[in-house]
Design a binder for these strands. Structure first.
Lengths: 190, 190
DNA sequence: ACTGGAGGCTAACGATCGTTCGGAAGGAGA
DNA sequence: TCTCCTTCCGAACGATCGTTAGCCTCCAGT
């Protein structure tokens, strides 16, 4: 992929995240590159191509983050690593993550189906950590692992809305993990 | 407000939630009412009016839910009530809640400013519960209440994405509360 | 020196966008 | 019966949408 083409993809990620897919015109994209809008079609076949590309990039980034979580070791450590990885992707590729989380639904046809499948697979991998933790006894036996995974995943999925670039995402992930693991009950509470 | 006008607002909420604000045309809205698109302008001055109306309705609903949380009593009970209230709004007014959470950013000018202020005020009220809990000693003294509130609020803000109408939102809120309060650590974990 | 491809230009296409307008049907109130 | 108000129609407006077409320039490879 040429350098110019990469610029276009990055501009698309930024503008789709900022103004939404339907709120971004081909003219906007062209302006971001300092070019006439017709010229973009030397690089793409349609505007939808760009959405697909950015969404796929997001899916790849989140899966890659999970790939680097070890298969063994204390489950709580792995949960912390998964949260760290997810938040790191959001923090370092905020535009791409925003499109992955919010704009994907404007995909159409089989691209949409393929995206949904990838997304579901990611959530499954995430949830498996909690199930394994319960089965191994590292998490409480009466844990509703689906709810626990939903709570954690919701928190990080929503992160694109409040995470500002440059913050220490590892520290936030660690605080989330500590809360999820130990709770917030005080000592003088029945 | 006339009955017809209310129908229009409800159709707007549904379509904005389903296809997005920019993805919904005035023609789509007219079709939902079985009417020519020009006829809608007997009820509204612009399409943006509808977005503002639905977004405001959402803000009112969420604030009303918080209003019914008592000012006194055990903080944990009040946190549970707040989560119940929030999730109940999402479950019972899914379209409105979706617009409140996701489509508000297409508001423009002072309407956008006013919405953001209302939203911030809601989050502040939510966060105050956690701060009070820590100060009263009902939540652990070393609690990072901002992080705790963020975790809880993120989970319920994201709920529009996975909550299906008709489920028992109170039960989900209770499970979230239990998790947040007591954590998920197992007994044979150091 | 010649060629081919990459990248950009201008101009225009048909479609659709949100909005406006004049007129008309129909019921409610006087 | 007359009038007003709500609601809608049908047609049109200018603007903007995503996309296509033909042409030009520049540069790397042969």
């Amino acid at each position: 992929m040429s350098a110019r083409r990469s610029e276009l993809t990055r501009a698309a990620a930024r503008l789709f995240a900022e103004k939404g897919y339907h709120g971004t015109s081909v003219g906007d994209l062209a302006q971001a590159l300092g070019v006439q809008k017709g010229s973009l079609y030397a690089h793409i076949q349609s505007k939808a191509d760009l959405l697909w590309e950015v969404a796929s990039e997001g899916a790849a980034a989140f899966h890659a983050a999970l790939d680097s979580v070890p298969d063994e070791g204390p489950v709580i450590d792995r949960i912390r690593a998964a949260l760290r990885g997810h938040l790191r992707v959001v923090g370092e590729q905020l535009d791409v993550a925003t499109v992955f989380v919010r704009e994907w639904r404007y995909l159409e046809g089989e691209r949409r189906d393929a995206f949904v499948a990838e997304r579901r697979r990611y959530e499954e991998r995430f949830r498996a950590l909690y199930r394994e933790g319960r089965e191994l006894g590292e998490l409480r036996a009466d844990l509703d692992d689906a709810t626990a995974a939903l709570l954690a995943l919701s928190a990080v999925n929503w992160a694109y809305a409040w995470l500002r670039p440059g913050v220490d995402t590892d520290a936030i992930a660690d605080r989330f993990t500590a809360l999820l693991v130990d709770g917030m009950r005080g000592y003088n509470t029945p």
